[in-house]
Design a protein around this nucleic acid. Structure first.
Length: 875
RNA sequence: GGGAGAUUAGCUCAGUUGGUUCAGAGCACCUGCCUUACAAGCAGGGGGUCACUGGUUCGAGUCCAGUAUUUCCCACCA
């Protein structure tokens, strides 16, 4: 007995457990074609959010479909150690326990971190299971596990040997909260409201003042010069003079540099080489002192000489007050400027001079750029190619060292000023001994820093198959088939993976990249914790079922475009599940007449839906090829709801209390099964359940292993004929509605005699369908053009519904008149076109023929309408 | 400052190579229905000068130019 209501939670748990027990998600290399996807590894600290759900639903759809198409589908799951984010979490956790990171040794800290990872690191993967993700869980990888770590170390050593890695002292982005350097890609800029302070500097040995404008008065103690433009007439007389740094009292030179914009502020710029990229450049040109006024946590350093150890933003206010009190502030303006913040800690970035490791990216970019431009790696949507191209052509070196503990420790070892790079300490020591035979073991020191998280991520498509150690799996699964990810990490991750792929495999890492958009709320705001507009993913699954959520997300997610999430979408998904469930209940409830055969109507219905599903499979295939997944989803939705439920099932449904012939029942189960297969990748759970409830299946004969329906030839004439039947039925229903005729009241319908009408009515099964769905006594042909009743045109056939009672002719006349006007207009426009010599000679013959046919049809309709109006006495 | 998109129904979006029966879908809306699969439903229906202006063409939602509005990316002037 099938329950009257679908219970997603129960069904979903049951099937997920079954699938995993059967090892259906597991893949091993074999003779079949491989279809592989590597998951964008979520942060080990992460919990499932809408972005993950969208992203992973798409991957699961692609993987399940490929699996059903007979490919050896392998979806590799895993997590990312997320260096900064995780370390921040662990530090916070320790703080709550009253432990300071600074009081721990590296080893002690890492012990806590691993403990934390073991405890919380698997949560997000468990959540993915709730969504139905058919990952090969036996392959679950972690960017810091043995194989992945080994890949990272090997690659570092390899790059160093190839001279594509170097250590350099440069201005970098410093995150004072995490106390580490960040790459440019990890800094997010946004316009923020701030103040522009106009500060007066006294010119040494005079009573004159020079006014500069700055947003950062707290860096004044770090000033090394004041710069003006060499051609600025206001200041040329100051060449060679000095100014006194307010309050601090140091004398610094006035320098001339073309970098200065005369139009901005006062045209005078304070130069703080330690704390601004441009100032640093100026400093180099003029040989200025570098005075670093901040500690690594963003508090004032001893070099600042003031407000020692107080935070930079507090000092900004205090120092501004001091300046004002001393008469140095001319004015303070409101000002919008672009502030860079750490992607992970959201802390304002401090430019800082520092010694770090870099990858020479120009040496890697070439093949990776070509690959995308030539569509060797295909981007969907295409326009992301431009973004990629621009970045690759202007690529900057990648700063990969991080002043953290959680991550891959850099395999660089130092002795005196010498660097030794090797996979192990022992190897490094051997190298060192060659150069310094007397070196003591304890004097060789490993670099304290770890590598950027992305330094392991960029190897992911190779390293998940342990490709740096064993080629067996890699040769089979690599290149992976498609990467599904957000465009926001195109530089951080996608571009670098492509570079790594060509550098170490000389092959693309994936054939295609599908970029998903951001999930936003319906007001287009980003989903965020602070706005509270991000729905709880698991709660959504609880409420609407994983299938409902998957459907909702997919029904409205244009490629590359943002998804404006509205709970209505998943509600529609749940309703769809319900619809399918009820269709199952209907089919299941049919008692079978074993002796009967399908009547002409049922036979036609089956032929029709069967042809229709062939056509549908073609559309779906095409849509998938272009990653138009939401279109594929909606076309199935519409097919199931409209064609299958509203039309097909109504066509064949036996009258209450009657049995159905065995043939039609089996046909219906056959169609329903094909539907569940088509729908399975999108809604895996309910389809599996329905598949098994439709009929008895042998052991292991499951929907997720069934064959995905492939495009097949279809009879378009048949489809047209049934469309016409549907049109007639709809028209009759409309007449019922407009004239308040109960459905129970059977009607008689006549078609005006014509060749086509004759053909129609003799079309096998056609009259049965009309009779059943419109509840007719009869549908016949007449030659009597003046027969009374409610008339309508279907195609070019005039149909008349014979009425028992008088109809409201006024409304009908109005309607018909409007339609006539439209048809006359239409005919005129077609005639005009056909009378246009240039059209007839210029347009292709097929187009002209089409127009002629249109004209003929149009004239026919005009004729019918005119006659009808004449009959109604209004012409 | 440089670049890439977008603008079609109340909302979110399709609309492939220009062909008019090509103005579409879902949701929302309106009307009538608790008709034994389904009110999480059924049947029917009404909504659009395709941002604006010009151009190319026999023909433009579709191609070109300009304008307006807007989103995003990159760079960045303190």
């Amino acid at each position: 007995m099938i329950s009257s209501r679908y219970n997603p939670a129960e069904v979903e748990n049951k099937w997920y457990e079954y699938w995993t027990n059967q090892k259906y998600f597991h893949s091993e290399p074999d003779e079949r074609e491989a279809f592989s996807i590597v998951i964008p590894p979520p942060n080990v600290t992460g919990i499932l959010h809408m972005g993950h759900m969208l992203n992973n639903t798409i991957q699961d759809i692609l993987i399940r479909k490929a699996r059903m198409e007979g490919k050896n589908a392998c979806w590799v799951p895993g997590t990312d150690h997320a260096s900064i984010a995780t370390e921040a979490k662990v530090v916070q956790m320790l703080r709550e326990k009253g432990i300071k990171k600074g009081d721990l040794t590296r080893e002690q800290f890492l012990e806590y971190a691993w403990e934390w990872k073991e405890k919380y690191g698997g949560i997000i993967l468990e959540q993915l299971k709730k969504l139905g993700a058919s990952c090969d869980w036996d392959r679950t990888a972690f960017t810091m596990d043995k194989e992945r770590s080994s890949a990272v170390i090997k690659v570092f050593v390899d790059l160093y040997k190839k001279n594509k890695l170097y250590r350099g002292k440069r201005m970098i982005n410093w995150d004072p909260e995490a106390k580490t350097v960040l790459s440019n890609e990890e800094v997010l800029y946004s316009m923020e409201q701030s103040k522009l302070y106009h500060v007066k500097y006294q010119i040494a040995d005079t009573d004159e003042f020079l006014t500069i404008a700055t947003t950062r008065p707290e860096t004044i103690p770090g000033d090394s010069a004041v710069a003006v433009h060499p051609e600025d007439p206001r200041y040329t007389h100051l060449a060679g003079k000095k100014v006194i740094v307010p309050i601090i009292g140091r004398e610094i030179p006035i320098i001339m540099d073309e970098y200065v914009d005369m139009e901005f502020g006062t045209g005078a710029l304070k130069v703080t080489p330690a704390h601004d990229v441009n100032d640093y450049e100026i400093g180099l040109r003029h040989n200025l002192d570098i005075i670093d006024v901040f500690n690594e946590d963003g508090s004032m350093s001893t070099e600042a000489t003031i407000y020692l150890n107080e935070d930079r933003f507090i000092v900004r206010k205090k120092f501004a007050k001091d300046l004002d009190a001393a008469g140095h502030i001319l004015k303070i303006e409101d000002y919008q400027n672009n502030v860079g913040r750490s992607e992970r800690t959201n802390c304002v970035i401090e430019p800082r001079l520092s010694l770090q490791w870099y990858v020479d990216m120009k040496s890697l970019a070439g093949p990776a750029l070509d690959a995308v431009l030539k569509d060797e790696v295909e981007f969907f949507p295409k326009n992301q190619k431009n973004t990629y191209r621009y970045w690759m052509e202007n690529i900057k070196d990648w700063c990969i060292s991080r002043q953290l503990w959680w991550g891959h420790r850099i395999p660089a070892y130092y002795y005196n000023d010498e660097i030794f790079v090797a996979e192990t300490f022992e190897e490094a020591f051997e190298q060192a001994k060659l150069k310094f035979p007397d070196i003591a073991l304890e004097n060789l020191r490993q670099d304290e820093d770890v590598l950027d998280t992305w330094f392991s991520s960029w190897l992911w498509p190779i390293s998940v198959f342990d490709g740096f150690n064993d080629r067996k799996e890699l040769d089979y699964y690599y290149p992976t088939s498609v990467l599904v990810t957000g465009w926001d990490i195109i530089f951080l991750w996608v571009a670098r993976m492509i570079m790594a792929g060509y550098e170490w495999e000389e092959k693309r890492p994936f054939n295609q990249v599908y970029f998903t958009g951001m999930v936003r709320d319906k007001l287009r705001r980003k989903m965020s914790k602070s706005l509270g507009n991000s729905p709880d993913a698991l709660k959504l699954i609880d409420t609407y079922g994983a299938d409902g959520v998957r459907f909702g997300l997919m029904s409205c997610s244009p490629a590359g475009g943002d998804l404006l999430f509205d709970e209505k979408l998943v509600e529609q998904g749940r309703n769809f599940s319900n619809k399918i469930w009820n269709a199952l209940r209907l089919v299941d409830s049919w008692d079978v007449d074993h002796t009967g055969t399908a009547n002409a109507g049922n036979q036609l219905a089956y032929n029709w839906i069967s042809n229709k599903i062939n056509a549908l499979a073609g559309d779906i295939q095409k849509n998938f090829e272009e990653f138009r997944i939401s279109e594929a989803v909606m076309s199935i939705y519409s097919f199931v709801w409209n064609d299958f439920c509203s039309w097909y099932l109504e066509m064949v449904k036996p009258p209450f209390g009657e049995k159905i012939d065995i043939q039609t029942k089996e046909n219906s189960i056959d169609i329903f099964s094909r539907i569940t297969s088509l729908l399975h990748p999108i809604m895996p759970f309910i389809t599996e359940e329905v598949w098994h409830l439709l009929k008895h299946r042998s052991e292991g004969e499951d929907c997720m292993l069934s064959q995905y329906p492939q495009p097949a030839p279809f009879d378009s004439v048949l489809l047209d004929r049934v469309e016409q039947a549907k049109d007639i039925i709809t028209n009759i229903r409309d007449i019922r509605n407009k004239n308040s005729i109960k459905n129970a009241e059977a009607l008689d319908v006549v078609l005006l005699k014509s060749e086509r009408a004759n053909a129609l009515i003799s079309f096998e099964g056609w009259t049965e369908l009309c009779t059943k769905l419109a509840n007719l006594n009869t549908i016949t042909i007449t030659t009597d053009e003046n027969i009374a009743g409610a008339a309508f045109i279907s195609g070019t056939e005039k149909c008349i519904v014979l009425m028992q009672k008088e109809i409201d002719t006024e409304k009908v006349i109005e309607e018909k008149t409007r339609e006539l006007e439209y048809q006359i207009g239409f005919v005129k426009s077609v005639e005009a076109k056909l009378n246009n010599e240039r059209f007839v000679s210029g347009a292709p013959a097929t187009v002209v023929d089409k127009e002629k046919a249109k004209l003929a049809d149009g004239l026919e309709r005009v004729k019918i309408l005119e006659e009808e109006l004449k009959r109604l006495g209004n012409l």
